[in-house]
Write a protein that binds this DNA or RNA. Structure first.
Lengths: 245, 245
DNA sequence: CTCCTTAAGAGTCATGTTGACTATAAAGGG
DNA sequence: CCCTTTATAGTCAACATGACTCTTAAGGAG
């Protein structure tokens, strides 16, 4: 904070307190569709509605810390696994009436998960599920907007960063990487052109030595790659049509 | 917030309350240098240090509302003028110990101002000043980081948005627009190439009809332009060297 | 085993954009 | 009147991109 303009002898308890929470837009790819982790609310307001997972920031914890803790709790992944996931602060939502119960300021995050294990039930009664992006109805609170902002941000960052690999397992094929772009952007990309772009961008991916192919489906087996050192794409890999979603 | 995992009968006052503030990185161009609006702290902690302007979010106010209110107070600009300025949420800083006095979560904003009037003293004793970016010493709290993040964000957005016009008066020359890029990025751009890029990007700028030239300095008088309808640049205007600052 | 389908991977070609330059025009200063 | 400065008009080659074609290597159906 600033300290400037702090009233002399300011008493924190003199103000209506603000609750500070985190909300998570946890995204993954399952069967070539973008999925979001949602929880069903068991109590009012919005009882029965789906909502983004999230929770309170604890007194000795940063928003990032709270987000990673919630991410581990909701996905059931080990702390070690969660530590490697891409977690990115989106923005903070602070409209006075966004929660009818009290004044809640929420720091929103986007998290990108490669594998997508079924979420564990967790200790409480609320059920958590992966749902295809867009198939859920209206979400609770302003979570529709948060989720849309997350999608928008991720889509934009695919253009000029190497973020796409965050959706992939440690070793992946170029087809899987292309599928990330196609799914998030909702477009089809030309295979050879995509391949050329990725391979000629230094540090985007690096070839895996061992068995140069992967079995699984039909078609010619594909070579495997790992994420490279680079984090940004210069020049960027722009969406077709030249316009944001 | 989520509502999920909220303890039954949760009492807001049972937790140590969080103070929520806004911090502003107000940027402008003066004499071809990037300047920041800073205030001198009059009390501990960091008494005598320079800090970003900011203040508490009021109980019935959003963070954006608080930011715009503080912006008007600190710059002395009219509410009408401030309403037209570019104000953008950066991110939220929430490390538990960022303010030694109490738990303060701060939503940071970047504001872009064209003209840069001298800041009015304001009602309190603290003095406010425009200072050239980088010439101030260490700022109070984590404001060095906030300011660096603001610079980084603005520099990045110049690449793929029409944000540069936010630094310019309503009517400007292409030389002034180019100066924005050069100053923020700290590079020199080729005049003819910059001109070609701006003029061939539909909606970036539109020519002003009237007197097709502007007097003032040496050299051939330049034509005047206004900001156009477009908000994004496709394809982007990439920084030289291909790497972020 | 053979044909068909699917996807990987190699390569071509025209187009559009960019970076590097050259040249001219129109002002002010000495 | 010459020199400097800045705007504006062009040129040209290198590069990146979009649209295609072709070959290779799997799996599945008959």
């Amino acid at each position: 904070m600033t300290g400037h303009r702090v009233p002399e002898g300011y008493d924190p308890y003199a103000f209506e307190p603000f609750a500070v929470t985190v909300d998570l837009a946890v995204l993954t790819l399952r069967e070539d569709r973008l999925h979001v982790l949602l929880v069903e609310r068991g109590q009012e307001p919005y009882a029965g509605s789906w909502a983004l997972p999230g929770g309170f920031v604890l007194p000795r914890e940063s928003a990032e810390g709270a987000a990673r803790r919630e991410l581990a709790e909701e996905t059931g992944l080990s702390d070690g696994t969660v530590a490697g996931l891409h977690l990115e602060q989106l923005r903070t939502y602070s409209e006075p009436d966004r929660d009818p119960r009290m004044r809640v300021v929420s720091v929103a995050f986007a998290a990108l998960v490669p594998d997508a294990p079924e979420p564990r039930g967790g200790g409480d009664a609320a059920q958590a599920r992966w749902m295809p992006y867009g198939t859920h109805g209206r979400l609770a609170f302003d979570h529709d907007r948060i989720l849309a902002d997350a999608h928008e941000r991720v889509g934009a960052k695919l253009e000029y960063t190497c973020l796409a690999t965050a959706f992939c397992p440690p070793e992946f094929t170029l087809g899987e990487l292309r599928q990330v772009y196609e799914t998030v952007w909702g477009v089809e990309l030309d295979r050879p052109n995509f391949r050329r772009k990725v391979l000629t961008t230094p540090g985007f991916v690096q070839a895996v030595e061992g068995p140069p192919r992967l079995t699984g489906g039909r078609g010619k087996p594909a070579a495997l790659y790992r994420a490279g050192e680079a984090t940004t794409l210069h020049p960027p890999l722009l969406r077709p049509e030249g316009r944001s979603t």
